[in-house]
Amino acid sequence: MGQIGRVVALACLLAAFFPQGAPAFDAGVKRSVENYTAPDVVLVNQDGRKVRFKELMASSKPVVLDFIYGTCTTICPVLSAGYSNLQQKFGTDSAKVQLVSVSIDPENDTPKVMREYLKRYRARPGWDFLTGSRADVDKVMRAYSAYVPNKMSHYPLTLIRNGRDGKWIRLYGLLSTAEFMAEFEKASKP
């Protein structure tokens, strides 16, 4: 359990029940526009190939980035279903969009685990799942204001790079396919 988990657990102890409450982000998606600089680190993708993260982020294609892990509950499944649906919308053009998921549980997320995960979500070419050393993954999380000291206290975040000026749209919350597509189109308009 993350920090939040601890606080809640404490509340449980006091009140003698568990669990309780309602999701914190049901109010809707929070949107902002940000500038980020990709750190120069080498990560490993689902095929065990080394990937220079900075180069991937500088792709001429539109880029979408999220932070997940293989055994995560509730948030990652929904985020990944979103990626899967987006790819489906693009059909055979799926590789025209670069979808990137960075693991926040790099110790457990080996290429094999990531490959199986992608298969479950019927990932097509154009969706890369990246792992690496904890230090490098931390650098990536920090660069996108997504750092969490503990994987259990992460939150749903989708980042879309605007093709025109390289700015990032930061979306905090879970997106419907329609919302995702609308944001994506805004970001990738020439």
């Binding site: 309602a22 982000f25 992460h154």
Partner: peptide, 11 residues
């Protein structure tokens, strides 16, 4: 029994 992760309570 559910879970609590990333701000989401799964009942």
């Amino acid at each position: 029994v559910g879970s609590f992760e990333g701000g989401v309570v799964t009942l």
